[in-house]
Design a protein around this nucleic acid. Structure first.
Length: 407
RNA sequence: GUGGGUGUAGCUCAGUAGUUAGAGCGCCUGCCUGUGGAGCAGGAAGCCGGGGGUGCAAAUCCCCUCACUCACCCCA
């Protein structure tokens, strides 16, 4: 038969499919992160993929040209979720009767940005946020910074490096310079001075501002944060004051921090800041907030690099093969029994396929065990359990097989 | 938004104007009528990204276009 037209199978630029082997890794990481969030007493929050465009507009600053925005069928301007900080602020302003402050929530959802994709950067990506709203003091910042470090500790990294600064130290420095200063570590003084001059400052002014930034000292807020981290038992080498860290978000108002993993080159894996005025854009009342966004994909890449991810291709433990159509029913019965014992069990879905093909299938899928039920086994009320890794097999009673598979 | 690279089999790629376009891996069949991986034998699979131009002749040269990708900007 001839088909007229084949639709080209393709994904949009910057959007990805995750085949089982990769999806298993992603879910492993997501479960771990969720676990640490809950360990710290944070509850989940979910918000819609689409928001009114005006919810995001004017909040982000620099990045707004990257909104995925369009008119919906009702002629409303809408935007895909660009981050998770703005939505949580909207939620806190929208449900004052239902939300008890301080509000500690985590959020693991997709976000979309219409950037040109490249390595480690996509148009659709997972972000894992944790925030505290309703606490103005540095203890809240310290807690989410501690959480930032504990996640990576729990994931198995031997060491992280957190750079911490405070935006309020930059009161006397024009915003346009802040963006340039952020590049100091990457490009060095000379280039940054050049860039500042291009923005209309004299060389003298540029040098003056740079010196000022480099000689900044931790303020009271930062000292309180460092005291908290010390008390919480984190090694000194894991965190440090970094006067040149600024971050580009226009809503930053206080402490800011970034987490890097020594040896991982793609860049920072987590970034956080305080945003005391953001809820106020949705409400007459200002509610302070602080928290971070964890880059899921970068964290995953780092874990891959350090060998911290599971490598299995399937979650299935055993394939129940079918000896021939007349024994199909026996195989069904065995499958049910194994599943009842909480063993992930696949029954081969075609009774006509020869046994060698079924074994080949299990091998390709990396299923660790195959159960074989032929005339001999049925006569003796046993099953043959083959371990595909060791290639050894045993003909044993069912309950012994269950014990082996549960072990 | 700016700049570079690449588009040939399902995948990774070779092939710079001259018969019918190749390799490795993967896939299918058999050797093997109660057993996967290895080996051997065979097989299927390509409008050489698309359009136009030059030539007797184009996967190969020229122009346009599209797609993907990397870097910059910015970010996670």
């Amino acid at each position: 038969m001839k088909k007229n037209k084949i639709i080209k199978p393709q994904t949009l630029k910057g959007f990805r499919d995750f085949l089982p082997e990769e999806a298993i890794k992603r879910q492993y990481l997501e479960d771990k992160i969720r676990r640490v969030f809950e360990l710290y007493g944070y509850d989940p929050l979910e918000t819609p993929a689409l928001e009114y465009l005006e919810t995001f507009k004017g909040q982000i600053g620099e990045g707004e040209k990257l909104f995925y925005k369009f008119k919906d069928q009702g002629d409303r301007w809408v935007a895909l979720r660009y981050d998770q900080t703005v939505p949580v602020c909207r939620v806190v302003a929208q449900y004052p009767d239902k939300i008890t402050l301080p509000f500690k929530r985590y959020q693991i959802q997709l976000t979309w940005r219409a950037e040109k994709p490249q390595k480690g950067r996509y148009r659709e990506f997972f972000q894992c946020d944790a925030d505290i709203l309703g606490v103005a003091g540095p203890e809240a910042d310290a807690e989410v910074i501690a959480l930032s470090m504990d996640i990576y500790k729990y994931l198995g990294f031997k060491e992280v490096k957190v750079s911490i600064n405070d935006r309020s130290l930059f009161k006397d420095i024009p915003y346009s310079l802040i963006v340039s200063i952020d590049k100091l570590k990457k490009f060095g003084q000379e280039k940054v001075i050049k860039e500042i001059i291009q923005k209309g400052f004299t060389e003298k002014e540029a040098k003056k501002y740079l010196e000022k930034v480099i000689s900044l000292k931790p303020n009271k807020t930062l000292k309180a944060i460092f005291a908290y981290l010390k008390a919480a038992g984190f090694p000194d080498s894991w965190y440090q004051f970094e006067p040149t860290l600024v971050r580009g978000f226009s809503y930053s108002t206080g402490p800011i921090w970034e987490v890097e993993i020594p040896g991982f080159k793609t860049g920072s894996v987590l970034g956080g800041e305080r945003y005391d005025k953001l809820v106020g854009t949705f409400s007459k009342k200002d509610i302070p907030g602080t928290g971070f966004g964890l880059g899921f994909d970068r964290t995953l890449e780092a874990m891959e690099q350090f060998g911290l991810l599971p490598t299995k291709k399937t979650n299935t433990k055993v394939l129940v093969s079918i000896f021939s159509p007349e024994y199909f029913e026996k195989s069904i019965k065995l499958t049910l029994l194994l599943r009842k014992n909480k063993i992930n069990t696949e029954l081969y879905p075609d009774p006509e396929i020869r046994l060698d093909k079924q074994l080949k299938y299990a091998d390709k899928k990396n299923i660790p065990f195959v159960a074989i039920l032929g005339p001999d086994e049925i006569k003796n009320e046993t099953i043959t359990l083959k371990n595909l890794k060791t290639s050894k097999q045993q003909t044993i009673f069912q309950n012994k097989a269950i014990r082996k598979l549960t072990a």
